[in-house]
């Protein structure tokens, strides 16, 4: 058997994809997705940059000390982390019981509720914040932590309900019944069978909620600025008032928690847990 026929057979057994074309596609995708991040990232260590050179004129860590020494920026980092953690916690308390109910109970209005949650997504975010802002004026919630927190939690409700609901629904009832048969109480069954099995889905929801809160800029800016600044809202002012390199350093700092979470939850997110949550059942 010569190599040529062997290869011909291999390609006959598979469907044909043009090799050079798919190679080009891959390279373009890498440039498209990673290019901007790399181009910005390099700037955090760059002295100055002359067009059209493909590299900076020199390297420096100066910009890092500028950012790390800046108190307002430091406070923004603290605010963001605390707010994101608080958002996940509050959102979980509100949404997880509902997620379980959607997965396991049939009740009046269940479908309407599910679609209602989705309507939250359909209303444009900026428009929503504008309308919320006019309400918050009346309720004296503008520029308060509670106001910003409400906006952040609103942005996580869909993740925190749908994804865990799909995860709960995926736990086979027979496993729960087996545990009950063995003599476990209902609550016990939930905490020793249902919850651990649904945990990957809940974790993905928590990660997505954390990111959503950490990423939230428009609402925080409209409701919280200038009294309560988070990292993303700080970014708005930063890119306009500071040299490019400072924004680059700040971007890297802002991306660290996200990337850490990416590495932690990557398997579950790519594994379809996220996608599963977006189909109304």
């Amino acid at each position: 058997m010569t190599m040529i026929t062997k290869r011909a057979r291999k390609s006959a057994a598979r469907l044909n994809f043009s090799r050079p074309l798919s190679g080009l596609f891959c390279v373009l995708m890498v440039v498209f997705i990673l290019g901007p991040l790399a181009w910005l990232g390099i700037r955090a260590f760059a002295e100055s940059w002359t067009f059209p050179n493909l590299g900076p004129d020199g390297w420096t860590l100066r910009w890092w000390s500028v950012v790390l020494g800046d108190e307002t920026l430091g406070r923004a980092v603290q605010n963001s982390l605390a707010l994101a953690a608080l958002t996940v916690l509050v959102s979980a308390c509100i949404c997880l019981p509902a997620a379980y109910a959607f997965a396991r109970y049939e009740f009046w209005g269940r479908r309407t509720f599910l679609i209602g949650l989705f309507a939250l997504n359909a209303f444009p975010k900026m428009g929503l914040y504008v309308t919320i802002a006019s309400l918050f004026y009346a309720l004296n919630l503008m520029s308060t932590v509670l106001g910003v927190l409400i906006v952040h939690v609103l942005g996580t409700v869909v993740f925190m309900t749908w994804i865990p609901a799909a995860a709960f629904a995926a736990v086979p009832r027979s496993l729960e019944e087996a545990a009950r048969d063995a003599g476990a109480s209902k609550l016990r069954v939930f905490f020793s069978v249902t919850f651990p099995l649904a945990l990957p889905g809940i974790l993905v929801a928590a990660v997505m909620s954390f990111l959503a809160s950490f990423d939230e800029a428009q609402g925080s800016y409209l409701i919280g600025a200038p009294d309560i600044m988070t990292m993303p809202t700080q970014m708005y002012t930063l890119v306009l008032n500071y040299p490019n390199q400072v924004a680059a350093v700040f971007s890297i700092l802002l991306a660290i928690p996200s990337v850490a979470l990416l590495l932690a939850a990557h398997k579950h997110i790519v594994g379809g847990t996220l996608a599963e949550g977006f189909q109304i059942k």
Binding site: M1, K6, R9, K10, A12, A13
Partner: peptide
Amino acid sequence: AGFLAPDA
């Protein structure tokens, strides 16, 4: 059936 290529 042709879903798998034989080595020989």
